[in-house]
Design a binder for these strands. Sequence first.
DNA 1: TCCTGTGTACTGGTGTGATAGTACACCGAG
DNA 2: CTCGGTGTACTATCACACCAGTACACAGGA
Lengths: 142, 142
Amino acid sequence: MFFSIDPNGDVPIYEQIVRQIKLAVADEVLVGGQMVASVRQLAGELAINPNTIARAYQQLQSDLVLEPLRGRGMVVRRDAIKRCTKARNSIVADGVSRALADALAGGMSPDELRELFEAELSRQSQLIQSNQANASENGTST
Amino acid sequence: MFFSIDPNGDVPIYEQIVRQIKLAVADEVLVGGQMVASVRQLAGELAINPNTIARAYQQLQSDLVLEPLRGRGMVVRRDAIKRCTKARNSIVADGVSRALADALAGGMSPDELRELFEAELSRQSQLIQSNQANASENGTST
DNA sequence: TCCTGTGTACTGGTGTGATAGTACACCGAG
DNA sequence: CTCGGTGTACTATCACACCAGTACACAGGA
């Protein structure tokens, strides 16, 4: 599939998977009715214990994003995109809010903040474009 | 002093203290040569084990923000403000970067992002102003 | 039916954070 | 000097999250 996992990050692996799947649904990379990789398959690809994937899938199931088909696998719910775009918005808003709180507590001015924001935005936009270019050269996907 | 600690947050208590002291130095609320609350005093105020405070102070000492005066307490280093503003900038940039990565991975457009950013900025700026107003009414400080 | 693949449950190890208790070396005031 | 304050060190304990390993129950195809 398309995940990038950081095993040494401060966020748990299962939560990284949950978040990335929600973002993929919000971005319509994963659409309703589509099946996701099985626990063992994804675990093999990412070199992670299947239980960790299973835990992420359970979380996504209780968040009404995935639906289990017993004996067959997990499928994206038809109505998941609404919840995922909503979740995406609150995830982003929360991140921005935390960063802003730190910035203002540290005495950073709004103008400094805007400058930093735009710089990061253009940097990451550019980074995404180059990634897409690389991906189109060879049909790569993880 | 002025700390707000969330014992149930995802970040450790000692790290919250480290971060808030760095931000306070960057904002010149704490200036070079000024002494900080003692381990036992701050532990009493925040209802936290003194060992946790000591751990935060050790971290700040190895980060060259605080300096021990044996038998007297901890003092803010004269040259700490440079490091703290630098640390503040990287903390904020990191937070913004994470939020942007999520937003772009979730298919959010740059314009949506700017809108969200400005909304959060004005909201938190206003929130700070009202806090300052409350603080000036009564000479409160923790 | 048998086999393979699916999700799921249970158990245990490991690392980390927080707390408690105690003890030590140092400084400054009385 | 003595006493109360300071930071520091060390050990032990508890709780919790994360993860690995294994075994189980179920569905579908040969």
